[in-house]
Amino acid sequence: MDTSFPNPLDLAGRHCLVTGAASGIGRATAELFAALGARVSLVDCNEASLRALAEALPNGPHACHVHDLADVDGIDDLVRDIVAGLGPLHSVVHAAGIQSVLPAKDLKPEVWRRILAVNTEAALALARNMARKRICQGGGAVVFISSVMALAGSAGAVAYAMSKSALHGLARSLALELAPQGTRVNCIAPGFVRTPMLERLERDWDASQREAVEALHPLGFGEPQDIAQAAAFLVAATGRWITGSVLVVDGGYLAK
């Protein structure tokens, strides 16, 4: 009796594009996908961190692409270069994101426009390429990393929340456009995850504020690997019948 069981998260032979790959959730996703056998095209604006990561990843080959995703007009060329390098894409994980915590009355248009450019417009500019046969030959997957801030309000986070909730509408409609090609589009909404972005916020908290925020998560703060594993679940064969959805991975933050 054959007792072997194929790894349902196997990504061998898949070419995956991961943005924000130099740190945090993007980095953890790139590391996991490489470990699962994928060829990973890493995108970030931090060249040194990107190159160090590419050298450390197992399997491969992998490729680095330094690009500021606020340059939305340049994204079609970026995707073309990525495909020219490692072949057609199987999947895209948009993990890059920025935020600026400020009350709405003090938010300047250039600040919120940059947040929207990186968090939302870049997501659309990247993902719409998956409709093109020379970019993705069908049966692929797109994952947008959104946030619990897209589902629960937080004072001071209006631009970030706006940018992340837009990803949910984008995913639902794009899922319907790409379904005929068998390509799935989903979001993951993380709670507070220990990343450089959270570390920057924590610097301004005193001990009681930190405890209060952590107490909002019944299972404590998350780790980047928690989100990377959810992304692998959606991208691999395990996510075959999931599209247009938002997977909340938040340690129970929204359960309250």
Binding site: S100, V101, L102, P103, D106, A155, G156, R203, D204, D206
Partner: peptide, 23 residues
């Protein structure tokens, strides 16, 4: 409040080119 403090941090950065923590 904490949001006003963040506004001051942002003002310090944009007008005084100085970095301060909320603390």
């Amino acid at each position: 409040d904490s949001l006003a403090v963040l506004s001051v941090v942002a003002m310090a950065d944009s007008r005084y080119h100085a970095t301060f923590s909320a603390r």
